[in-house]
Design a protein around this nucleic acid. Sequence first.
DNA 1: AGCATTGGATAGTAAGACTATCCTCTGGAT
DNA 2: ATCCAGAGGATAGTCTTACTATCCAATGCT
Lengths: 216, 216
Amino acid sequence: MRLARLSEVSGTSPASIKFYLRAGLLQPGAAINPTRADYGEGHVRRLRLIQGLRSTVGLGLEDIRRIIDASAGVEDSPVRRLALLATVQSVVLRLDGDPGAASPAGDALVRAMAWPDEDSEARRAVDRHLAVMEAAGVGATAEVVQAYGRAADAIADAQLAATDLQDSVEDFVLTAAVGMHLHNQLILKIVALAQASQSIRRYGAGVRDAAGPGQP
Amino acid sequence: MRLARLSEVSGTSPASIKFYLRAGLLQPGAAINPTRADYGEGHVRRLRLIQGLRSTVGLGLEDIRRIIDASAGVEDSPVRRLALLATVQSVVLRLDGDPGAASPAGDALVRAMAWPDEDSEARRAVDRHLAVMEAAGVGATAEVVQAYGRAADAIADAQLAATDLQDSVEDFVLTAAVGMHLHNQLILKIVALAQASQSIRRYGAGVRDAAGPGQP
DNA sequence: AGCATTGGATAGTAAGACTATCCTCTGGAT
DNA sequence: ATCCAGAGGATAGTCTTACTATCCAATGCT
């Protein structure tokens, strides 16, 4: 198909498609001659992936490029797919950074949850984050961290169960990233609800009524 | 103190201070004469708040303005402070939106957690979010939602306990927002760790090694 | 008296993600 | 064979956000 048709099918403006081509997020179509190129189903899937990662997950084009690069060549093999999942998580949550020291709280968590005591980017990110919180005077007690751990276990289980290793790489990455993002948002909103609920429990419904800029 | 001194004390460039003054995020200093103004401790606190909300929590100036507006006049009264906390959460998590229908999953959660069955912005946000997830084909089972709920209860408890209702409004809002943000990030990172751990448990450490763009 | 500072206003910059315009080539209809 | 709408490529413009830099007249300290 030609650019105009690709634009229609994918719901992306021709100008944006050209932009993604220039940015290297989309392969050039097969050149029929110097002024005509042919695009296929792969281009449509790629555009769906870009759109989804942008609009739903809110990633920038640089992050999307990293995910696309990591997807290259990962067609089958569950192990590679799960590794790709780790990359997606790393990008979505910005897990990369300096190594940093292992934290006792992190060790305690891993032991309490009976998780394999392996070094991983996620583990280092948790350790670093606990150190940052400590430094900011916002410590997390071991009980709280373990409560997070139990919830995280359930979440991870649900997400892995919902992960279809048979999809095309694009669809696999897209559903994984979208699912991850939506679950993350859900947790945060439930925390907000819990906090509102506990406030009401302690101080009554007046808490709700006193909200907002205009005070009585 | 003069602008130059305020700049030194707060670590904000004079140009930025002027910018915040223009944007209305900072009150003008007490005018001594047409070309000289005096700034006080309140200005320093306000700048600390703006800086913290920007750099740590990553809020935009519009969101910061909403929080500042909501803080106006809230000096004491625990009830008002907790209401302010709800506003901060609403801004940080972007809880506002159309009402939307109540979801059975949300009701189940509230009942299971024995939270007060009150209407609130957070509750509507959870309901809406569950509907969005359903629509996106990323359903959350009741068990998962309740696992989130238990963790959220522990989180909310820890955060409310760490909330010092005696601080200045600025410090109160700042520590609340920063704590909220850091806890949120922690949860997401622990989920990432849980997922990595479960992947390794199922498929062995090969998952970790297969990560990254360069494949063997 | 004189010059650096202050405060206020105006305009410029940088990043990110497009969007619009221009130009040339071409392929199907005439 | 010829014409011209549309294709593809390149370049430049737009919009937003958050500053940063420059100007300018009025002071105030020396």
